[in-house]
Design a protein around this nucleic acid. Sequence first.
DNA 1: AATTCATATGATTTGCAAGTCATACGACTA
DNA 2: TAGTCGTATGACTTGCAAATCATATGAATT
Lengths: 98, 98
Amino acid sequence: MICKSYDYFFTKFANRANLEIIFLLKSWPMNVKMIIEKTGREQSATSHNLKKLCDCNILKVEKRGRERFYSLNKETVLPILELVQKHIRKNCKGCKYA
Amino acid sequence: MICKSYDYFFTKFANRANLEIIFLLKSWPMNVKMIIEKTGREQSATSHNLKKLCDCNILKVEKRGRERFYSLNKETVLPILELVQKHIRKNCKGCKYA
DNA sequence: AATTCATATGATTTGCAAGTCATACGACTA
DNA sequence: TAGTCGTATGACTTGCAAATCATATGAATT
């Protein structure tokens, strides 16, 4: 069924921690330490999250020494976020969390 | 935090049953009975799902007698689905579910 | 070579969203 | 007005994704 891959993709965005990482990396690439500092979450949890985000190419990694720099796949992710923002602004005035 | 409303929105798409409904309603509006028939899922579950999808205006409802017709908010949802499809095709060749 | 630093990994636990079950409700029909 | 049809609702249960915990890895530094 086609829905599977969509589900798989959307799942990554349906998570506060992941979204925080994504929004954070809109500015510039960061290594794990920086990401942890900014988000205030656990190292291990963050590492798991980063892996999943890489799995479907929402993020990409680059190794430098013992650090790893994660960057956002802006080409496809930013336009999606824009459309979603548009929807939220237009349609979610009365919504629970908007 | 801004992420909340995004999370809330994306959660609706990160679910097989919901996605099936969304894709189904790309063709035309349907009442609950039709939706159940096509998806093969439980009436009660479907009703819960439909409610959530309406909550953030991914779907809208129209009452006709004792039936309720659900239709997709094509204006904002279709463009999002297209971009996501694009991402999946490009970036998820080797992904678990793509 | 031992230690520390940056990060990943695997196993386990846990929280919560989604499904189930039972029931309610309102609109139509006989 | 009793019954049934289409759908919603609320309480309860459950499955699974995400967080946690403990440990590993590999690269730098001493």
